[in-house]
């Protein structure tokens, strides 16, 4: 998924972005448990922000690890 001249793979950027988004969205979901919004969205009881944010964190962490520049430099 990367090529010769490139030092940092695009997948590393994607991993970083997903990880940051995951932290923000999970954080917003956890905050929402104690401070529910005035108008709750449909299926609020499923707390989609928490599990979707967690999924983003996991995906982001996997890509960060697999495409980290230090791993490419070492290999």
């Amino acid at each position: 998924m990367s090529h010769g001249k490139e030092v940092i793979s695009i997948w590393f950027f994607i991993g970083a972005l997903l990880f940051i988004y995951g932290v923000l969205i999970t954080g917003a979901g956890i905050y929402g448990l104690s401070h529910p919004p005035e108008a709750e969205v449909v299926l609020w009881n499923l707390h989609a922000a928490i599990w979707w944010g967690a999924l983003l964190i996991v995906l982001g962490a996997i890509y960060l690890y697999l495409y980290a520049p230090f791993r490419r430099n070492r290999s």
């Binding site: 979901g29 609020w44 922000a49």
Partner: peptide, 12 residues
């Protein structure tokens, strides 16, 4: 989007 997505997910 507004029906299902609360803070954070809306931004995404």
């Amino acid at each position: 989007l507004a029906r299902y997505c609360g803070p954070g997910l809306l931004g995404l």
